Amino acid sequence: MAITPEGVDAERRIELVERPPTEEVVTHEELRELLETVERPRHYIGLEISGPLHLGSLVIVGYKLRDFVEAGFRTTVFLADWHSYLNDKLGGDWDRIRRAARYYADAYRTFAPGIEVETGSDLYARTPEYWEWMVRFSKKVTLPRVVRTLTIMGRRAEESLEFAQYIYPLMQATDIKALDLDLAHGGMDQRKVHMLARDVFPRLGWRKPVAVHHHLLPGLQAPRAEGLDEDSQMDLRISSKMSKSKPEGTLYVHEPPEVVERKLMSAWCPQGVVDNNPVLEIAKYIAFRERGELRVERPSKYGGDVVYGSYEELERDFREGKLHPMDLKRAVVGIVNEVIDPVRRILTADEDYLRILGT
C-alpha cells in the first residue's frame, strides 16, 4: 500500500514530479519506490546567489517547487552562499552574498508557498561531520571526473581556475548527504554532479538520491554554443540559457512592465522556426502552465483572434506560418507580467534590493 499525504493520490504525486518543466527523472522506478515507502520525502534544489532573479531562475524553478510541495515532499531551497563565493558571484563579496540571500528567500517563499529555505552557512555550522564527509567523498573521485562536472558552475574544463573552485562539485554532492535528501533536483545543467553523487554514494554506504532535472529556459537572444559541454546539444542548451551575463536577453522579475514588453518584442523569434525559439518556450512553459491556453488577439484582416488550447496547436501554426511572430510576442507579454507581478512588488518595494544585486 502506497504511503501518501492526505488527499493526494499516489499516481498524482508521480504525475506532479514528472510534470513539465521536468525533463528527466533518474530513475522512474526509484521515484515510484520512494513515494510508496516515504510519506514526506526530502527534496532540495541548490541555487547560487548570483544576481537579480529572472524567469528561468525563479519562475521555471518555482513551478517545479510548487509541484513538489503539492506532491507532499519536504521541499528545500538551498541558498548556496559558499558556492556563490567560490564561483565569484556578486564579485566574490561575501557580505553582499549573505545580504542578497534574504531577497532570494523572500522571492522563493512568495512564488512557492510551503517551501523551506536554508543557507550553506547554516547547514555547515550545524553539521560538524560535513568536512569529513566531503573528504571521504573526494577519496572516491578522480580529478578528471571532477573537471568534467565543472559545467555545473558555467565553467569550461580548460579555464584557468582557482584551486578552491575544484572543490565546488565535491561540496555540492556532500550537501546532498548533509541535508539527508531522498531526491536531488536541478536544471539539466546540474545533471553531471547528481550522476556523480549517485555513483559514489553507494560506495560510501550512503543513500543514493533520486535525481530530477528540469528544462533550461533559453534567453531571448539567438541560440549559440559556447563550449560549456562536450555534448553539442547540451552545450547549446547550457550556453543559451537565460542568464544575467546577457542582460538584454534576460527577463528579470523586478523589471517594470514596459521593460518586459520591450525585451520580449525584440526577442529572437524567426518566422516558422520552432527549435530553441525563446518566445515559443515562454508560451509553452509559462503561458500554458498559467492558463492552459493562449489567446492571440489580432485584426480580422490578419485572421482575427484565435485561442490555442494546447502548445502543439500553437507550434504547428507557427511552423506553418499561420501565426506571425509579433502576434505571438504580444500574446505572451501580458502573461509574463502577470506571473512576475507579485514578486516584483515585493522586491522593488525595498530600495536595497537592486543596489545589493548590482543592477
Score class of each variant (00 low, 15 high):
residue 316 R to T: 08
residue 81 D to V: 15
residue 213 H to S: 12
residue 29 E to R: 08
residue 33 E to D: 07
residue 330 R to Y: 09
residue 295 R to S: 13
residue 86 L to G: 14
residue 340 I to W: 05
residue 158 E to I: 14
residue 34 L to I: 03
residue 243 S to R: 05
residue 264 L to K: 00
residue 239 S to P: 11
residue 188 M to V: 15
residue 349 A to P: 14
residue 266 S to R: 03
residue 358 G to D: 02
residue 316 R to P: 00
residue 27 T to F: 07
residue 188 M to Q: 15
residue 71 A to F: 02
residue 314 L to D: 04
residue 172 Q to P: 06
residue 344 R to M: 12
residue 14 I to Y: 12
residue 353 Y to A: 11
residue 125 A to I: 07
residue 245 S to C: 12
residue 98 R to I: 03
residue 19 R to P: 00
residue 177 K to W: 08
residue 315 E to D: 05
residue 217 L to N: 03
residue 335 I to A: 04
residue 221 Q to G: 05
residue 112 A to Y: 01
residue 192 K to R: 15
residue 165 Q to V: 11
residue 155 R to A: 04
residue 343 V to D: 07
residue 210 V to Q: 03
residue 129 E to A: 05
residue 203 R to W: 09
residue 240 S to P: 03
residue 114 G to L: 05
residue 349 A to M: 01
residue 112 A to P: 10
residue 62 G to E: 03
residue 5 P to R: 01
residue 218 P to F: 02
residue 283 A to N: 02
residue 144 P to A: 06
residue 186 G to A: 14
residue 135 V to Q: 14
residue 293 E to S: 08
residue 140 K to E: 14
residue 100 A to P: 06
residue 110 T to M: 15
residue 14 I to A: 03
residue 352 D to C: 05
residue 294 L to Q: 08
residue 333 V to Q: 13
residue 92 G to S: 14
residue 168 Y to C: 04
residue 84 S to P: 08
residue 219 G to V: 01
residue 181 L to P: 08
residue 184 A to Y: 12
residue 183 L to H: 08
residue 301 K to N: 11
residue 227 G to Q: 00
residue 112 A to D: 06
residue 188 M to E: 15
residue 57 S to N: 09
residue 223 P to A: 02
residue 326 M to Y: 12
residue 288 F to Y: 11
residue 272 G to E: 12
residue 302 Y to L: 06
residue 327 D to M: 08
residue 41 P to A: 01
residue 342 P to M: 13
residue 116 E to D: 13
residue 75 T to E: 11
residue 144 P to N: 02
residue 246 K to T: 15
residue 158 E to D: 15
residue 284 K to H: 11
residue 143 L to D: 04
residue 350 D to R: 07
residue 207 R to K: 12
residue 58 L to G: 01
residue 247 P to Y: 05
residue 105 A to P: 10
residue 139 K to V: 04
residue 299 P to L: 07
residue 265 M to A: 09
residue 151 T to K: 05
residue 111 F to T: 01
residue 290 E to W: 07
residue 279 V to N: 03
residue 140 K to T: 12
residue 249 G to L: 11
residue 300 S to M: 09
residue 57 S to W: 03
residue 283 A to F: 02
residue 226 E to L: 14
residue 195 M to Y: 15
residue 60 I to N: 10
residue 210 V to S: 03
residue 13 R to A: 02
residue 87 N to P: 13
residue 104 Y to K: 07
residue 341 D to A: 15
residue 145 R to K: 05
residue 356 I to N: 09
residue 316 R to D: 00
residue 86 L to K: 14
residue 70 E to C: 04
residue 216 L to N: 01
residue 330 R to W: 13
residue 61 V to S: 02
residue 210 V to E: 09
residue 357 L to C: 01
residue 9 D to W: 06
residue 236 L to I: 15
residue 249 G to I: 02
residue 118 E to C: 11
residue 240 S to T: 13
residue 253 V to W: 02
residue 352 D to M: 08
residue 57 S to T: 13
residue 35 L to K: 04
residue 356 I to F: 02
